[in-house]
Simulated scan of single mutants.
Amino acid sequence: MRRSVAALVLLWISFIHLHFTQGSAIIDHHTPYWEQPFSQPYFENSTKRDTTTTVGQTAYLHCRVRNLGDRAVSWIRKRDLHILTVGILTYTNDQRFQSLHSDGSDEWTLKISSPQTRDSGVYECQVSTEPKISSAFRLSVVVSKAKILANPELYIKSGSDINLTCIVLQTPEPPSFIYWYHGNHVINYSQRGGISVVTEKQPRTSRLLISRAHANDSGNYTCSPSSSDSASVMVHVLNGEHPAAMQHGNSGGATTAVAVSLSLLTSSLLTGQLLRGVTR
């Protein structure tokens, strides 16, 4: 009986020893906490990796790192391996680049102010582990442009309506505003009656309607969205004496108007010559 009890005790001691021996292969109590496998930094993959912005519109690249510990996070420009930021410090003479981070947060954000097309490319969020780990983010900086759906010159008969439609191309976000100009004056809120401006964020369009146009409505009309290049057309409001020159979106408008003018000039010259002949 005593031998059986002793055997059980020895078996139990062996089991306990084996358990702790195996456990030490997983958790080494002599290894610092931050060097143990389960505490290694890693990237949270739910962050957006592709960002598109327009020229001049601030861009943000968001990198989230879990279990960072005492490691440092750096932002690297991939094309020339230039270090932009380390921690919250900027390591480049280009002060448009800035690292944003709040204490206790896992997020390290690269802010790029007034981006230009040359800033397009891949940026790496890098953690100073051994070996280093990194995550790539792609930035596309595009030139947003306005386009008026009309010919560069329009000929409108007096009393008709001026109807212009402007669309904004290559913009990731709808413009915060779209202004229409007649010459140098904003006409969105003009005191002249009969002017209507309808702007839609989707599909990023603005329509200008001027009813019963008269000669004073002639001139340059410009569609100017926020953060986009503007577009212009020249509108001629004619009194109706040259019907052939009236064009409504026809590409031959300018050519027809010139042809009419030349025809009138030729007729005047011929008439002058005839009158001189009669006088003689």
Results as ranks from 00 to 15, higher is better:
123 Y>A: 03
245 A>S: 08
159 G>L: 03
173 E>G: 05
27 I>Y: 03
117 T>N: 05
173 E>M: 09
273 Q>D: 10
51 T>R: 01
191 Q>Y: 10
269 L>R: 10
65 V>Q: 10
73 V>C: 04
85 T>L: 02
145 K>I: 01
220 N>M: 11
104 G>I: 06
11 L>Q: 07
181 Y>R: 04
112 I>A: 04
135 S>E: 03
244 A>L: 15
171 T>I: 11
92 T>Q: 01
99 S>G: 09
142 V>Y: 00
208 L>V: 10
93 N>I: 07
38 F>C: 06
200 E>G: 05
178 I>N: 08
244 A>I: 09
196 S>K: 14
88 I>C: 07
194 G>L: 11
183 G>M: 02
163 N>F: 11
251 S>L: 05
77 R>K: 15
123 Y>G: 04
182 H>L: 07
214 H>A: 14
107 E>L: 14
249 G>C: 01
206 S>G: 03
64 R>L: 10
53 T>A: 09
229 D>K: 09
37 P>Q: 03
18 L>F: 09
78 K>C: 04
224 S>C: 06
263 S>H: 12
47 T>D: 14
96 R>Q: 04
90 T>I: 05
39 S>N: 14
77 R>L: 11
204 R>Q: 15
78 K>N: 11
121 G>Y: 00
232 S>Y: 01
96 R>C: 01
248 H>P: 02
72 A>Q: 15
198 V>I: 14
242 H>L: 05
216 N>H: 08
64 R>C: 11
102 S>T: 14
105 S>F: 05
144 S>V: 04
142 V>R: 02
45 N>W: 03
124 E>W: 01
127 V>S: 01
192 R>M: 10
265 L>Y: 13
86 V>W: 04
158 S>K: 15
141 V>F: 00
138 R>I: 01
70 D>N: 09
86 V>I: 15
67 N>S: 10
117 T>Y: 01
183 G>W: 00
147 K>T: 09
39 S>H: 12
35 E>H: 10
180 W>E: 10
117 T>E: 14
240 G>K: 03
170 Q>W: 05
243 P>E: 06
254 A>G: 05
46 S>L: 06
77 R>N: 08
171 T>P: 06
188 N>V: 07
69 G>C: 05
5 V>Q: 11
176 S>Q: 13
118 R>G: 04
10 L>S: 02
129 T>Q: 01
38 F>I: 13
222 T>Q: 07
256 T>V: 07
218 S>G: 03
267 S>V: 11
46 S>A: 07
52 T>D: 02
105 S>K: 11
30 H>R: 09
87 G>C: 11
114 S>Q: 15
115 P>Y: 00
23 G>T: 06
